[in-house]
Every structure is written in C-alpha cells, then in structure tokens.
Computed example of a mutant assay.
Amino acid sequence: MIPIRDIIPRRDFPFVNYSIIVINILIFLYEVSLPEGLLNDFFYLFGLVPARFSHPEWAYFNGLYIDNYWPFFTNMFLHGSWFHLISNIWTLFIFGDNVEDRLGHFKYLIFYILSGLAASITHFIFNIDSTIPAIGASGAIAGVMGAYLIMFPYSRIVTLIPIFIIPFFIEIPAIIYLGIWFYTQIVSGTFSLMANQNAAGIAWWAHIGGFVFGMIAHIIFKKKKYRDFYPDEIYLKYFR
C-alpha cells in the first residue's frame, strides 16, 4: 500500500515540517558528495551503532568514542539511498502537516525530536550488540504517525494499491491504515528477534518505539480539541 495523501485540511503553513524535510534533503545531498569510504565513516560516526556503547573495547578499536551520545540524535537525519530518503519525507509530508497544526510549530519540533530519540533508545535496547549503523528519519516519523492515529483516527488516507499493472486508488480510514502498518512492524520486529537478525536490515523496533511514543506523548503537546480546532462542518465531515 502506497499512501498518496490524506483528506484532512490544514489551517496553518507547516513550516517546521517543511524545514525538517529540507534539512534531510540537504544532508543527503552532502552524503552523496562523499567518496564511498568517507561515507561509510560518516555513517559510523553519526549513525547509531549500539555496540559503540555496549562494547567499549570494540568501539575504541574502531575509533569510536563511547562518551559521545550525539548519534542518538544525528542518526535521524541520515539516509542510505534515494528510495530511503524519498519514502521517509513523503510519509512525513502526508502526516506531519496536520500534526504540526494540532501541536503548534514549536511543540511539533520538540515532539519530532523526542520521537526520534525514543526510537533510537528503543533500537538500542533491542539491538544492543549490533555493529551496524542505524540511520533514517523513520523512527521520528513513526512518532508523527502514532500521534496522527490518535488525533485523526477517522481521517481517510488515499492509498495506491497496485494489482498486477493496474493501479487502484482507495480511501482507507487512518485507524486501519496505520493500524496495519504498526502491526507489520510488530510482527517483523518479533521475527527479527527470533531469527537473531538484530544487527541488520530495517530498524523495526525503532519504528515501534517512535510510534508508541507518539501515541502517548501527543497528549502533552496538543493544544486544542477537534471541535474547537476545526469548523463544525469540517468536524462533522471528517471525524464522526
């Protein structure tokens, strides 16, 4: 399922969300300018490598310092490929504007960063021996998605479902679309633990940690009730 857009109108220009998208793009453009060897070092320096903190002898041997905790933050602005980048910023583009609307610009920025940190910590806990750098904004974006699920459960997500070569566009309630997405993360994350493949592949538990954080923490940040925030005609159309 490929999300195309949601149907909830926004009230304010989401300049924080767009700024985060631009920052991710600029950093990725810098990445692609680096030679392959330097890029690998760049990922190990600024990506989250759990073994850096759980195995100090390994970290020192590879020139990594265990008293530098910035990778828990910096990893959320790095991406490994154009597809990785585009899929993340597209998802953020779809869900982030409405969440920024509901939280306010400054609170949304803090919320996004904290979601990314929660995702990083969760990844570290479940992949504590991994020597592979975890990179990507998906953990922080999962937090945005978790908040969106709670705040806009009856919104509709226009979704592309290709069947053979025929594209079908259908509207799926957010509670179903995001519920399915979260379920796949839980299943995949559980199988990754059972298969002892914690050091490679997609950071499933970062997604889970970010999503759960977003579902819970949005309550601290949200500023208005739905009916106060949207005109009655919008509320009745999209939230009943």
Rank of each mutant, 00 (worst) to 15 (best):
G139Y: 09
L26I: 10
V32H: 06
I141Y: 05
T184N: 04
I150R: 14
F15C: 09
A200D: 11
F83K: 03
W82T: 11
F106W: 10
P173H: 08
K224L: 05
I172D: 00
F15M: 09
W70Q: 12
W70T: 13
A119N: 10
T122C: 06
T131M: 15
N62M: 09
R10H: 11
I141R: 02
I166Y: 13
N40T: 14
G210E: 04
F46K: 06
I4T: 06
F124K: 01
I172L: 02
K222R: 15
P50D: 01
I20Y: 07
I128G: 00
Y226V: 12
P153M: 01
P162A: 06
N98H: 06
N75W: 11
I172Y: 01
W90M: 14
D6E: 08
H55N: 14
T184A: 05
I150V: 04
G179D: 01
T159A: 00
I175M: 07
P153R: 02
I8S: 08
I234E: 01
F169R: 03
P50N: 02
N17R: 07
M145I: 14
L236H: 07
D129G: 06
E171N: 15
I219T: 08
V144A: 05
N68Y: 08
E233A: 11
L48W: 08
R10P: 00
W58A: 00
F77V: 05
W204P: 05
T190R: 10
F164Y: 11
V158T: 08
F93V: 03
L78V: 09
A51Y: 03
K224D: 13
S130K: 10
I180N: 01
L39P: 00
Y65D: 12
E31Y: 07
L193A: 00
T131C: 10
K222E: 13
I121V: 13
F13I: 14
N68E: 05
N198K: 12
H105Q: 12
Y177G: 03
L78F: 12
D228A: 10
I4P: 01
E57R: 09
N24M: 14
K222D: 07
Y148P: 03
G143V: 03
R156M: 14
G47Y: 09
F239S: 00
E171C: 05
V144H: 04
M1V: 08
I135L: 13
I165T: 12
